[in-house]
Amino acid sequence: MLAVHRQFILPGHRGLHADVTVIPTGELEVNIKEKNNSLKAEFEDLYFFSSGKATDIVCRDPVSHDEVRWQLHMASDDARELAKMIESAEEEFEILMRDL
């Protein structure tokens, strides 16, 4: 069970790069390199909202689902790739737990 790391270029923000780490135990870490901004979330707190060629990834507060902790604007293709990475990590973790 390994964390998966990927770098994405954020649309609409000249030259901003998001270093994304998907951790199979159910965590996502995002670091915006140019802003030295670190974001963290549990998988179950993430919501994907697509509109055209862009997707907003929203991390909501686990207690008050109306409160947004952070939001990331990504290209839809990149967001789909991230969603697949999260899904694979969840499956990998589930298989590991079943085998124990």
Rank of each mutant, 00 (worst) to 15 (best):
M1H: 06
L2F: 10
L2P: 01
A3Q: 08
H5F: 13
R6E: 04
L10Y: 02
P11F: 04
G12T: 02
H13P: 00
R14C: 01
L16E: 05
H17V: 11
A18P: 05
D19I: 00
V22C: 00
I23C: 06
P24G: 09
T25E: 12
T25I: 13
G26S: 03
E27M: 11
E27N: 02
L28C: 00
V30T: 04
V30A: 03
N31I: 04
I32C: 02
I32W: 02
K35N: 11
K35Y: 09
N36W: 02
N36Q: 14
N37D: 15
S38N: 12
L39R: 02
L39V: 04
A41S: 15
A41M: 03
E42Y: 14
E44R: 15
D45A: 10
L46H: 06
L46S: 05
F48K: 07
F48Y: 15
F48M: 04
S50T: 14
S51L: 09
G52Y: 07
G52A: 06
K53N: 15
T55F: 06
D56F: 09
I57Y: 07
I57E: 06
V58G: 07
V58N: 03
R60W: 02
R60A: 04
R60D: 07
P62D: 06
P62K: 10
V63P: 04
V63R: 13
V63K: 13
S64D: 13
S64L: 14
D66T: 06
D66I: 06
V68Y: 06
V68M: 12
V68E: 15
R69P: 00
W70S: 05
Q71D: 09
H73E: 06
M74N: 01
S76E: 06
D78G: 01
A79P: 00
R80V: 10
R80G: 00
E81M: 08
E81Q: 12
L82R: 01
A83N: 08
K84I: 09
M85S: 06
I86Y: 00
E87D: 13
E87K: 07
A89D: 04
A89C: 12
A89H: 02
E90C: 10
E91V: 08
E91I: 09
E92C: 02
E92A: 09
L96E: 14
L96T: 13
L96F: 15
M97T: 14
M97W: 05
M97C: 10
R98H: 14
D99N: 13
L100G: 12
